[in-house]
């Protein structure tokens, strides 16, 4: 498989603070690759570096066989971008937004017009063709932004938190569309802090924290490698005392957060049997997921 994005040892700092600190990424054609990390981990900065919108302080970068940032313009001809914040043109209709955006790629009006029906269908916006942007819901705006990113039929699509702020229905529709794009052979690079999103969509993902890449693999491998396979969440007012007395006895690892104890185990049966005898405690037994890995690797404290 050929690499369509490759970054070696990227560095970027602002005002003496390393925002991106030695990140290396190789993404192959057709992959859906996720960048995960708490706020301020350097996800958006990494995307902007890869697109050649800002210059790295150090490192080597190639995007679709073009050296970036020097030849970023040529590379961006075949790239689509869904930004974190909506920046559709509020004065234009849905169709006009696509037309005007296509022109930035040097496309002819006739060429763009020919693509608009398919783009609107992809975005479920056929009936909104002539609607003004302020009349659209948040989900519609996101879908239009996704359609806009496809106007030039790009090989790679960058998506910066594509589903932030959307309700579950809208989010599921976006996920479905992103899967269709991967099925068509497009390469996707997305940032998110929704673990279920990353786990469902991404073939591989990287976890960034404070500008460093702290893990990189398939979602399944990350879970298998970094965490015990079973999790028992124990809830209740008396959880802290219970955890202090008993958790270490039944769980390989546990963490208490407020009135919840997260117990990580290979075999949950002894713990479950014990909990059945403790009527005051409620519990949830589930397989370990990416969020557990994420919290283990990046910690539970707030990042603001």
């Amino acid at each position: 498989m050929s690499a369509v994005i490759s970054a070696q040892n990227l560095h970027k700092s602002y005002a003496g603070q390393e925002v991106v600190n030695g990140v290396s990424i190789t993404i192959h054609k057709g992959e859906c690759y996720g960048l995960l990390g708490p706020n301020g981990a350097g996800k958006t900065t990494t995307l902007r570096l890869l697109l050649g919108l800002i210059d790295p302080d150090g490192g080597e970068l190639r995007l679709l066989d073009h050296a970036v940032p020097r030849h970023a313009r040529e590379a961006r001809l075949r790239v689509g971008v869904v930004p974190q914040m909506d920046n559709l043109d509020p004065d234009f209709s849905v169709a006009e937004n696509l037309l005007v955006y296509g022109r930035y790629f040097g496309m002819k009006d006739s060429e763009i017009e020919a693509r608009i029906p398919a783009l609107l269908e992809f975005a479920n916006l056929i009936h909104k063709r002539d609607a003004k942007i302020p009349t659209l819901s948040g989900g519609m705006k996101r879908r239009l932004t996704l359609a806009r990113a496809l106007v030039n039929d790009p090989e790679i699509i960058f998506l910066d938190e594509p589903t932030t702020g959307l309700d579950p229905q809208a989010r599921h529709l976006i996920w479905q569309r992103l899967r269709e794009l991967t099925a068509q052979g497009k390469t996707l690079l997305l940032t998110t802090h929704f673990m279920d999103e990353a786990e469902r969509l991404c073939h591989r993902l990287a976890i960034l924290d404070q500008g460093r890449m702290i893990a990189q693999d398939t979602p399944q491998a990350l879970i298998a490698q970094h965490i015990e396979p079973q999790v028992v969440e124990v809830f209740g007012e008396r959880v802290p005392q219970w955890a202090q007395q008993h958790a270490a006895q039944y769980a390989q690892r546990f963490e208490v957060s407020g009135e919840t104890a997260f117990c990580y185990v290979s075999d949950a049966q002894p713990l479950l049997a014990h909990l059945r005898g403790h009527g005051a405690l409620r519990y949830l037994h589930r397989p370990a997921n990416l969020e557990d890995v994420f919290l283990k690797l990046t910690g539970r404290e707030m990042r603001e």
Binding site: L53, L77, M85, L88, D89, P90, Y101
Partner: peptide, 14 residues
């Protein structure tokens, strides 16, 4: 305000 420039700068325009 509208971030129109951001949108444009993601295309092959400088």
């Amino acid at each position: 305000e509208q971030r129109t420039w951001d949108a444009i700068l993601n295309t092959p325009v400088t």
